[in-house]
Simulated assay, not measured.
Amino acid sequence: MIPVALYIAIIEQMARGAGEFWMSSGSQTVTYVSVDVSLLMILNTVLAFERSRGPSKALALLIMTTYFCA
């Protein structure tokens, strides 16, 4: 339980940092980084759902889509 909570906290902090950096600079490169971090957060959320509910084709498609886009 503790490693999962730590992993979630690290990902959330990375997303928060990317968002703050994007708001302060506004460059196109930082926009790409912010989108990438958002996709990683979606990916990790979907992976958590898959682990708790079991595998499904729809979740696998969403996982692979967000993984390749990120």
Rank of each mutant, 00 (worst) to 15 (best):
residue 41 M to Y: 04
residue 43 L to S: 13
residue 30 V to S: 01
residue 14 M to I: 09
residue 31 T to A: 14
residue 19 G to H: 01
residue 7 Y to T: 07
residue 32 Y to K: 11
residue 45 T to N: 06
residue 45 T to I: 02
residue 25 S to C: 02
residue 32 Y to G: 03
residue 38 S to C: 06
residue 35 V to Q: 03
residue 15 A to G: 10
residue 42 I to Q: 06
residue 34 S to Y: 13
residue 15 A to P: 01
residue 44 N to R: 05
residue 32 Y to V: 07
residue 8 I to A: 08
residue 26 G to F: 10
residue 40 L to K: 02
residue 28 Q to Y: 12
residue 36 D to W: 06
residue 13 Q to A: 15
residue 14 M to G: 09
residue 21 F to C: 12
residue 45 T to P: 07
residue 23 M to L: 11
residue 29 T to Y: 02
residue 18 A to S: 14
residue 8 I to V: 12
residue 39 L to W: 05
residue 27 S to I: 06
residue 39 L to N: 15
residue 23 M to Y: 15
residue 25 S to E: 02
residue 21 F to G: 07
residue 40 L to S: 00
residue 35 V to L: 07
residue 45 T to V: 07
residue 23 M to A: 12
residue 42 I to A: 11
residue 34 S to N: 15
residue 24 S to T: 03
residue 25 S to M: 00
residue 12 E to V: 13
residue 22 W to G: 05
residue 26 G to A: 05
residue 23 M to C: 03
residue 28 Q to I: 12
residue 30 V to L: 13
residue 39 L to I: 04
residue 43 L to I: 00
residue 25 S to Y: 02
residue 35 V to R: 09
residue 20 E to V: 01
residue 39 L to K: 08
residue 40 L to Y: 02
residue 37 V to A: 14
residue 42 I to W: 11
residue 34 S to K: 15
residue 15 A to F: 01
residue 31 T to F: 12
residue 18 A to T: 10
residue 15 A to S: 09
residue 35 V to T: 03
residue 7 Y to W: 10
residue 26 G to I: 07
residue 36 D to N: 07
residue 37 V to W: 04
residue 34 S to C: 13
residue 38 S to V: 12
residue 12 E to Q: 12
residue 20 E to I: 02
residue 27 S to K: 00
residue 34 S to R: 14
residue 43 L to V: 05
residue 30 V to D: 08
residue 45 T to M: 09
residue 34 S to A: 15
residue 11 I to E: 06
residue 9 A to Q: 05
residue 35 V to D: 00
residue 17 G to V: 01
residue 39 L to E: 14
residue 22 W to Y: 13
residue 27 S to E: 06
residue 22 W to Q: 10
residue 33 V to Y: 03
residue 11 I to S: 06
residue 17 G to F: 07
residue 31 T to D: 09
residue 19 G to V: 08
residue 9 A to M: 14
residue 22 W to R: 11
residue 39 L to T: 01
residue 28 Q to W: 03
residue 45 T to L: 05
residue 40 L to T: 00
residue 24 S to M: 04
residue 22 W to V: 00
residue 42 I to C: 10
residue 34 S to L: 15
residue 11 I to K: 09
residue 19 G to P: 00
residue 25 S to L: 01
residue 15 A to W: 02
residue 30 V to H: 00
residue 42 I to F: 09
residue 23 M to V: 04
residue 15 A to R: 14
residue 11 I to C: 10
residue 10 I to P: 01
residue 43 L to M: 08
